[in-house]
Nucleic acid binder design. Sequence first.
DNA 1: TCAACAGTGTAACAGATGTTACACTTTAAT
DNA 2: ATTAAAGTGTAACATCTGTTACACTGTTGA
Lengths: 222, 222
Amino acid sequence: MKKVDLSACPVCSKLEIDDEEGFLNDLKCSTKAYQKNELIIRQGEVCDALYMLTLGSVKTEMITENGNILGIEIIKAPRPLAPAFLFSDNNHFPVDVTALEEVEIMKIPKAEIVRLMMTKPDFMTSFMTHNANRTQFLTNRLQLLSIKTIKGKVAHFLLENSIRDGKPFEINRNQTELADFFGVARPSLARSLSEMIQEGIISVNKKEFTILDSKRLRQIIV
Amino acid sequence: MKKVDLSACPVCSKLEIDDEEGFLNDLKCSTKAYQKNELIIRQGEVCDALYMLTLGSVKTEMITENGNILGIEIIKAPRPLAPAFLFSDNNHFPVDVTALEEVEIMKIPKAEIVRLMMTKPDFMTSFMTHNANRTQFLTNRLQLLSIKTIKGKVAHFLLENSIRDGKPFEINRNQTELADFFGVARPSLARSLSEMIQEGIISVNKKEFTILDSKRLRQIIV
DNA sequence: TCAACAGTGTAACAGATGTTACACTTTAAT
DNA sequence: ATTAAAGTGTAACATCTGTTACACTGTTGA
């Protein structure tokens, strides 16, 4: 079994462990390998252990890491899979997880996670933070999706990303990706953008946006 | 100060405390009272302590407990306010919180929460579970919102709530509430429902729904 | 019994977005 | 430099949803 790089894992990075080998040996867990295209987790399956992806990459169909709606999220080792669901009352996975290549999954029992959290403050806060960040991400997406008009979404998004009025800022998405992010059709987004440019509310140059009239922009959100 | 009913609080209920008085005295925290209509938390404020509502009720404008979009959520004591954000990297409150009556808020420093979690396993799992449930709730809402057509939302919702094909089941929302839940206009929902009834896919009697053709219902979601 | 009201069905119309198609520009690779 | 591919602007049209309005039903309480 290949050595796991703990420092790269969002929930383990802060662990100060002298004896990494010993730490992993003491951890009660089972490791299982999967072939390419093998189904690792089926939607609805009970989640009673933390699934830690230690090698390879997997895909899940859900809200993706970069925010696209119902797209395919690709997760690379090392990262926990759906850690938030381990403690929920209805502890079922919301999605299928499929191996994209040769994959190793470390399955750590819930009780063991609890033990880790109780004994290692750094692990606990990392784990909490990781989940909290995910929650905040979901909240933001929900706010954006609950805005019904395309112009409203654009306004919300630009106001959230701008530094200050009149100062140009980069959006690291092209128009097609932005449309996916908003969950709208690309030509529809283009139309809305060009109307907002026409009205003198914003200006756009490639991926560089400038807010010209933040007051009117705010009014659009409703 | 009025005595707090710990057993009713979702994150404290499992605490086995002989000396409740002593427990609260040992807890490093500050309590503050607010008048009716007073702003307790401003959107964007830094969240570096757990805000526990110990008395009264507050409102926040966000995704509500019963799932309505951008509605006003009313929270009654005892319940923590936005516990998920305490540990997030970008620890800012996403919403305003306003007192609906005379309110008491117990502000517990993050370090104190960490201490509690480290020393009281029951508190830790309750806290984790509460946050996890919230995450799962958000995930479900996001899935529903990402479906763009009204019929699709209806299909997703009914399939999720039905016991089995052909067996009637109750939805504890009227049509108006259901429309709010989906984030659509009431007449639009009525139209979609009547079309689906016309097509023989479902039948509806007051709040009792029956799935007649689950295959076609599944096709609608897309 | 009656009135008031919430809840529902439905229609006409307006507005927003999706779909499809195509031309044009920019970028990257050869 | 040339070409292919990706990205963008835009138009015409179809479709869906929201808005507004009104009639009808069932429920509730006086």
